[in-house]
Design a protein around this nucleic acid. Structure first.
Length: 427
DNA sequence: CGTCCACGTCTAC
DNA sequence: TAGACCTGGACGG
């Protein structure tokens, strides 16, 4: 659950679930986890939390005696999350556990299947990380605009957006959404993009009122770095938490670009998939135009196959998602794969969708995500279509691909199928 | 069964 | 700028 909305939602969750509750005893760590033990034990204490970007601080406050307030700073890695359960329902991969004193006894757990997450007892917010895009917006903005000479901004904007020194809280799904909504090609160099934002701020030519209006109607890319995470927070639930809840399908359903059929994707220079529409921009990894249909190679290497294969693919550069799977194939009937400059794009063709499928959960990619899988890449059914970015409509170059219209029914369906509140606030 | 992919850092060549 | 660190779901054979 790891971009800033998820971390923030985790803090909200903790404060809601732990309010008025007393915890007791020692903090328990799983055997397998390599992070440090938490040397805190107390007959009675309370728990609260705050977040900043991609970090979460959990505060343990003793209610009596000579115990000291202790806090723990978490980073969630790729799969960390926080949940509260009855002791009898301890989740798998619960690596750090805090037990309630009250009965039925419950346990607040840091769950992290992949164990990329970390925690630091009495640690500070990581010093190299910038201000939180959600909660320290003004400082975040200033930090970026005052440091445009940093070589980080020599890079493509899509890569700069993942730099936590400037964009603390932005992760892979948010960057695609931000770029999409600001109609910025992902592989444009970051500096000019941000300098344009700066000039707009400084420009005197326009009356303030006009500027405000423009901002409101078409937020710039830095504003989107804060607005979009807030939108996700406002979806409620816990955000990106695969598998377990309907929250995940709601998040995917919210996305207009990330893993959305019809959108293109490329691996950036760090091997991370960036989703976009239209022109990739000048700094796109080389080899995107050979026109080779891009067959996935069979990996034959003995070791580190995944890497090796990735590399080969990078040479030919990909593609826009062509998801495979039988479920998807079914949907593929309605989708045609085209090719543009060597980049394949998947173009939704179906314009109308009737209700029904709906009933059967296979209707939308999001729906299937909710039901079965935890990973977008594994989702196949796709009826999803994207929507024209509202924010900045006019400004950008016309896209080569038609922007499909969104089906209004999809949302309804998903919402309906899920009543997601179920899990997140109950005991 | 093997391969690929996933919300992110980290650190070693 | 590669790997390393991990688990697990989906898919293809």
């Amino acid at each position: 659950m790891p971009e800033c909305p998820e971390l923030h939602l985790a803090s909200v969750y903790i404060n809601a679930r732990c309010a008025g509750r007393r915890f007791t005893g020692a903090v328990e760590k799983s055997e397998v986890n390599k992070n440090a033990e938490v040397p805190f034990s107390c007959p009675e204490y309370t728990i609260s939390a705050v977040s900043r970007g991609k970090e979460l601080k959990v505060i343990l406050t003793p209610l009596s005696g000579r115990h000291h307030v202790t806090h723990i700073v978490f980073r969630f890695g790729m799969s960390g999350s926080i949940t509260m359960k009855n002791v009898s329902e301890m989740p798998k991969h619960a690596h750090l556990r805090f037990y309630t004193k009250d009965v039925p006894r419950q346990v607040l757990c840091f769950v992290d299947p992949r164990r990329f997450g970390s925690w630091h007892v009495n640690g500070s917010w990581q010093s190299e990380r910038g201000p939180c895009v959600i909660q320290e917006y003004e400082q975040f903005r200033e930090n970026v605009l005052k440091n445009l000479s940093d070589k980080v901004f020599d890079k493509p904007i899509c890569e700069a957006l993942l730099n936590q020194k400037y964009f603390n809280g932005i992760g892979n799904y948010l960057r695609s959404e931000i770029l999409f909504r600001s109609q910025t090609p992902p592989f444009m160099q970051a500096r000019p993009v941000l300098e344009a934002v700066k000039h707009m701020d400084e420009g005197n030519d326009l009356p303030l009122r006009k500027k405000v209006k423009i901002k409101k109607e078409s937020p710039d890319i830095l504003e989107l770095c804060s607005l979009l995470p807030k939108e996700v927070v406002n979806l409620g639930g816990k955000g990106y938490e695969p598998g377990q809840s309907n929250d995940y399908s709601i998040l995917l359903n919210w996305a207009r670009c990330y893993f959305v059929p019809g959108m293109k994707s490329l691996k950036d220079h760090n091997g991370r998939t960036v989703w976009f529409q239209g022109d990739p921009g000048p700094l796109a990894p080389k080899g995107t135009k050979g026109g080779k249909p891009l067959k996935r190679k069979k990996a034959t290497k003995p070791k580190s196959k995944a890497r090796a294969v990735k590399k080969e693919e990078n040479d030919e550069q990909i593609e826009s998602k062509v998801v495979k799977s039988s479920a998807r194939k079914r949907v593929m009937k309605s989708i045609k794969v085209e090719e543009e400059d060597g980049i394949k794009i998947e173009k939704p063709q179906r314009t109308k969708r009737t209700s029904q499928g709906v009933g059967n959960k296979k209707t939308s990619r999001r729906g299937s995500a909710r039901k079965t899988s935890s990973h977008p890449q594994n989702i196949k059914a796709t009826v999803q279509t994207s929507k024209v970015p509202r924010a900045v409509k006019a400004k950008t170059p016309q896209r080569k691909t038609a922007i499909p219209t969104r089906e209004s029914s999809r949302i309804r369906i998903l919402r309906k199928s899920g009543g997601r509140a179920a899990e997140s606030t109950t005991d």
